[in-house]
Computed example of a mutant assay.
Amino acid sequence: MAWNVFKYCTALRALGSIMILVVIGIIGFTYYALVVANYGPSLFLGGFDSLLALLVLALFHFLLIMLLWSYFSVVVTDPGGVPPGWRPELDIEKSDGNQEYSSLTVGDSSSHIVRYCRKCNQYKPPRSHHCSVCGRCILKMDHHCVWVVNCVGAKNYKSFLLFLFYTFLETTVVAISLFPVFLVFFTDGDSDVTVSPGSLAATFVAFVLNITFALSVLGFLIMHIMLVIRNTTTIEAYEKHTAPNSPYNLGRKQNFEQVFGKDKLYWFVPLYTQDDMKRMPALRGLDFTSRSEESEPLQSL
């Protein structure tokens, strides 16, 4: 039997909102190393140094704004809960006999079995899962993210992906910008970079932190891009041994639009247009179009 990586997610409660402070601390430390210790003073040197510093600082602050906007959008946005009194229609997902679900029949056919969460005492829409950390069922739940102290679900998944995207760009820019100063540690001390020992140490640590995060986030970002392309979630991918072919895979274009919307101007900001919210039920997390009415939906934890 495969090890259930979600079994011990209740331990994440202990971390609480301290992770938000950790994120802010890392950003603040990086800001000091790049802006205060290095490129801020370079603005007053004149010539090419000032121009380079201006470009680096402009790009850094733009990406920082987008990163923070996306990050706090994930933190404060409700990922989507099951509306009170929601009841399923016909052809809802079948139960696998897990004790969390109740085998209720719909209509005259016993083949239509709906899912029922015994913990929440309510029906569960397709692709929803009960989060042990949040203590409720989350619509199109992907996972509970300790870094944002929130579940990642139907209504904040786009913000989460943008957070990964801008974090990768920001940490890459910081690592490249601090690389010349980082090399000072491996020279004999003869260098055009003139910073204090304390600033040099801060630069060294900031470079290591940012190159590490850039590589880590890149792998995570690639994984989620593949999930979006296949129109699946982390939990569903974990369960693929029970249902290898997702019925929700409608092709790359439609799969992408189910997460980012159809308006191209809003693809890179953690917002949706009102038109997208009205015409795309998947963005609300309750209704999902499948390839075929005969496709077998994915089972749930």
Rank of each mutant, 00 (worst) to 15 (best):
Y123F: 14
F185S: 15
S128R: 02
F220T: 12
Y116Q: 07
V5F: 11
L15Q: 00
T273G: 12
R13M: 11
V82Y: 00
F204S: 03
W147P: 00
F185E: 12
T30N: 05
G46M: 01
V76C: 09
I26Q: 10
R284S: 15
W86K: 04
P247G: 10
V22W: 01
L15T: 01
V114C: 13
S196M: 06
P41R: 08
T172D: 02
I27H: 06
V184H: 04
F163Y: 09
F29V: 08
H144K: 08
F60Q: 09
V148Y: 01
P125W: 01
K264C: 04
G47Q: 03
L12V: 03
E170S: 08
P281M: 04
P180Y: 11
E294I: 14
M280Q: 10
S300K: 11
L63M: 04
L54W: 12
S216L: 09
G285N: 12
G261K: 00
C151V: 06
C137L: 05
S102M: 06
G40Q: 02
E293M: 15
S177W: 02
L54P: 01
V114K: 11
T289A: 14
I26L: 14
F72E: 00
A206S: 11
L34D: 08
Y39F: 15
E170M: 13
V205C: 11
E239L: 11
R291V: 07
V181W: 05
F288K: 04
Y116R: 03
L215Q: 04
I92H: 11
D188N: 12
H129T: 11
Y266R: 15
H130E: 00
R115Y: 07
T234E: 09
V23N: 09
A154W: 05
S109T: 14
T77M: 14
V148C: 10
E296Q: 09
T10K: 13
H129M: 04
W147C: 01
N150G: 01
K278N: 14
P281G: 02
I176G: 09
A2H: 09
V106M: 07
E257I: 12
